[in-house]
Design a protein around this nucleic acid. Structure first.
Lengths: 196, 196
DNA sequence: TCATTCACTGACCAAATGGTAGAGAACGGT
DNA sequence: ACCGTTCTCTACCATTTGGTCAGTGAATGA
């Protein structure tokens, strides 16, 4: 049923737990128990908890990169590209919310791993900024602060994946429908900021 | 210099640490050391760490309530009310980002304290929803999903206060200017969603 | 003046934490 | 049959964690 290697299984489980419960709230013993192995097996593959976190962050970074690159390959220039990317990111947020949770966890101010993720995402960020600025110069997008636009989109998508309790308090159950609704809302915002 | 009672000082320091470093990453010993007192003193005022967290959440909830109510008293109906509230919340995010961080920390899925905060905020949420719906019915705001609108605003403001590292990665230093910029962006979004 | 309450502390403690050392098992290559 | 490698385990360990207990000294009130 599970044809993953132990190392891969540890990585997956750690991503899930770090991303939802947090790094500090995750003990190696608990992680091992969930996997049906001993803590020392984890420490064999990842010599320390910090190294494990680094590996988790690296893997997550790669997942994000492939997701985003897939979207950008499919989509054409202009508004279509933005829409395709947002759709793909929402799909990721729905399928693997723990990845977005990890992002939130790691980007805590002062986190040493924040830099690690930043470095990984830098080329993608630069690419997005370049894309937006080029579209603006070409007149297909109106002038706006590319960084702020990207940050708004980021906040929204991470929020969708992680603020389940808040949503619930607001009477928004985490259904597929509400996700679609929030996606539409973000697209509307981006459209009004970029196109008209 | 510091005319606060020990109990109040503990509450403040705990709010700061829980809100920025997280609950699990905060040890009572470290908290006490920062305050120049002994851990047992903390446990004298708050019989357990969980009780301390509950007290922190209660205090934060009260702070939010007074902030929001102050804003609503000052402002008139219609768009002015929304703008006043957003401005007040951004000021709070700038002055006490740890409060927003605490919100994020506590609203983790499965958190037992999430419910506590939810209960406290419920009347305010209901009030906001009522306000929006009434304005819509009066024709001053166009029809929209009040919950989604509030959630978007929430995500943005919490993001402003907590996603410092991400902002920095995007080339947005956490200056006053960038805050103003993001506030304008949120107001623009809300305006387009509610007014035109 | 004496008893009581309040705020705080030092000495402990059991449990959990991340981590080390070393002993097998499983395995393919020679 | 033997060896080296890879992987997982049992047995420990030092430290840190939240928390208990028994105080101490200073106010406070009768």
């Amino acid at each position: 049923m599970n044809d993953l290697s132990t190392k891969e299984r540890v990585l997956l489980a750690a991503t899930a737990s770090f991303g939802t419960n947090g790094y500090d709230a995750t003990s190696l013993d608990a992680l091992a128990r969930d996997l049906g192995i001993r803590k020392q097996t984890i420490l064999y593959h990842f010599p320390s908890k910090e190294v494990l976190l680094a590996a988790v962050v690296d893997q997550a970074g790669q997942d994000f990169r492939t997701t985003i690159e897939d979207a950008l390959v499919d989509a054409g220039p202009g508004w279509d590209g933005v829409e395709a990317l947002v759709r793909r990111m929402f799909r990721l947020a729905l399928a693997r919310p723990e990845l977005l949770g990890l992002l939130r966890e790691v980007s805590r101010p002062g986190s040493s791993t924040a830099h690690r993720l930043t470095t990984q995402m830098e080329p993608l960020i630069a690419r997005g900024r370049l894309f937006l600025k080029r579209e603006m110069r070409a007149g297909r997008f109106q002038q706006a602060d590319a960084n702020i636009v990207m940050l708004s989109a980021y906040s929204t998508i991470v929020g969708v994946a992680t603020e389940v309790e808040v949503s619930r308090a607001l009477g928004i159950e985490p259904t597929l429908r509400s996700m679609v609704h929030r996606r539409q809302e973000l697209l509307r915002f981006l459209h009004s900021a970029l196109v008209a």
